[in-house]
Structure formats: structure tokens, C-alpha cells
Computed example of a mutant assay.
Amino acid sequence: MLDSLSLDRMRMFLTVAEAGSFRAAAARLGRVQSAVSHAIAKLEDELGIALFDRSGHKPALTSEGQALLSNVRDVLLRVDAMRARARGLRDGVELELSLTVDVLFPPLLVGAALAEMSQTYPSVAIRLSAEALGGPITALLEKRSQLSIIVGESFRDPRIAVDALTAIDMIAVVAAAHPLAQQAGPLDAAALADHLQIVQFDRSSLTDQRDIGVISPRTCRVGGQDIKHAMILAGLGWGRLPGWLAAEDLANGRLARVETGVLGRRAQLPAEAYVGHRLDAPLGPAARSFAAALARLCAEP
């Protein structure tokens, strides 16, 4: 009967589907293989359908199993989220707040929110790191951080809950003395491709060799926004910088906008910033205090 469905058996079903075999699933779950096989057989009896085709070298999802997989994943995510919320309500103040911030996000806002949190929870230690592209999401998935600030829409995962904070304007810029700054716009992609582009590389595996926002075949790949900013200022090439980082140099004439519509109107595109956490990991009082302070600061003019 459906009322007798076991969450443990559903979790085994999901693990077998993701791991590709009963043996691999047993290793992940710390169970013996026979227990996993028995649990799947019991689940199939309860549902009245075959979830796996066992005729081949490895079990393969049947069409019925494939159809139910998303339902099982959704049920388990919701249960994990409920358990996490209960633990968060039960547990006291954290010993440490671990936070990973996207390099495109203004660090002064992060510092102000952390300072506010520390006034209320002075005993909480802070571990802060900055990563690019898929790094903040990876830090959550690998449980290296309780919270991450994520910029852009390229990196999402159903295990991560996110709340929007603010938009970060990404502006294509070049040193004032660079040849691109002297060319009358609007420049097309071919004109930009003639010049070296300074781009951020991803230390995580989430981009899977994808280039995001890369136009030129000639690139200089850097590991941080500070060095990217410096290389653009030095005249090495052009690239996109967050508006908060480029604003002063644009105002005093050290940097110029690249006159192109290829990367948004006036070479400017907004990227939404989010604060995220794992659905199955409870946020303690200090983490909730920080997230609330950051959201309020982002909403202020």
C-alpha cells in the first residue's frame, strides 16, 4: 500500500538510480548490497511496478522507474528540508559561520552585514572565502560553507535554496589608452574578437569547459577580479567588471566603456545576486541574522 512507503527505501532507490548499480549504491549508503537489493524489491512490491530492468550487466531504470524518479527526489528534498528546519529550531548559536562569496559581489556589503551579525552574536567565529563562477555553489554542495552568495543564473541545483538580493551590473571596459577606447562604436563581436579578452576562470567543475561571456579567441585567464581589474587597467586587454569595482576608474577616466551592444546596452548587463544554502542543512541564528542584514543592506539606496 502507498501508505506503507518507506523513506529509507525511496532513498535507496534514488541512490541506485544515481550511482548506476546496487553495489555502488550500497557503498555510498554504507549498507551491504543484499540489503539494498531487498529494499528495492520491497519498494517494487509496494508500488506494484518494476523500477529497474535487471536483465543487463547493470540495473537500468524502467520507463515507470524513470517517471517516478523525480517524484521520489522531490519527496526526499522536502523531508530533508523539514528535518533541517527542525534541527535549526532545536540547536543553539553556531560556533562558526562559514561563508563563500562570489567575487563579483561587493565585499563592503558583506563586511557590513557580518559586522551587524557580530554585534548580536559576538562569540561566533567567521570563515570567509571568495570564489568565482561555480565556486560558491560547489562550496555548498561539498558542505564547505553554510551560506554562499551566488551571482548569475548559470549555476543552480535543486538541493540549494536561494533568495534574491540585488543586481550586479557587469560592464565591458578597457583602459583609456587601449585601441578599443579610440574606436567609434558601436563595435560588433568581430571587432572585439580582434583584441585580447581578460576573463575569469572557474576553479570548480560546474562550467564543464564552458566559456561564459567569452567572445575573443585570444584570452588571458585570471584567478580573481583584483588581478583582472589590474590587467585591464594596464592595457593588456578588455573585459567585463562589476560596476562597483569599475565605477571610480570610469569616473576619473582611467577606464572607458567598450562601445558595443553585443554585451547589453552601453556594454552593460545586470546579473542577479542570491544568498543560498543547502535545503538539508539548518541555518542557525547567526546565519539567519547575517542573511537578513545583507538583504536589508542590499535593499537600501
Rank of each mutant, 00 (worst) to 15 (best):
T207Q: 08
Q33R: 13
I150A: 07
D8T: 09
A130I: 11
L89Q: 15
S148C: 10
A267V: 02
L43C: 12
T120I: 15
L263S: 02
M117P: 03
L69F: 06
L68E: 01
N71K: 10
V101C: 09
G135I: 01
R9S: 12
V110D: 04
A132Y: 07
G235Q: 00
A273G: 13
G239V: 01
V36F: 01
A251N: 01
A177L: 11
L283Q: 15
N252A: 02
I49E: 10
A247M: 08
V103Y: 09
P217K: 06
E131W: 06
P270E: 07
G88F: 04
A161L: 13
K143S: 12
A246S: 02
P179V: 02
A292P: 07
V262W: 00
L104V: 04
Q197G: 12
G56W: 01
V110A: 06
A247Q: 07
L7A: 11
R156F: 05
L294Y: 03
L180D: 06
T207K: 11
D208P: 03
A86E: 14
L2R: 13
A189G: 05
G135A: 02
F155P: 14
D211A: 14
A39F: 01
G213H: 09
R85M: 10
I40W: 04
A164Q: 15
G261F: 03
T207I: 05
R11W: 11
D91P: 02
G284D: 11
E300Q: 15
A191S: 14
A256D: 04
G20W: 00
Q209V: 04
V75F: 12
T100V: 06
S4L: 14
A19Q: 15
G264A: 01
R203Y: 08
I198C: 09
P242R: 05
L206F: 07
A39Q: 05
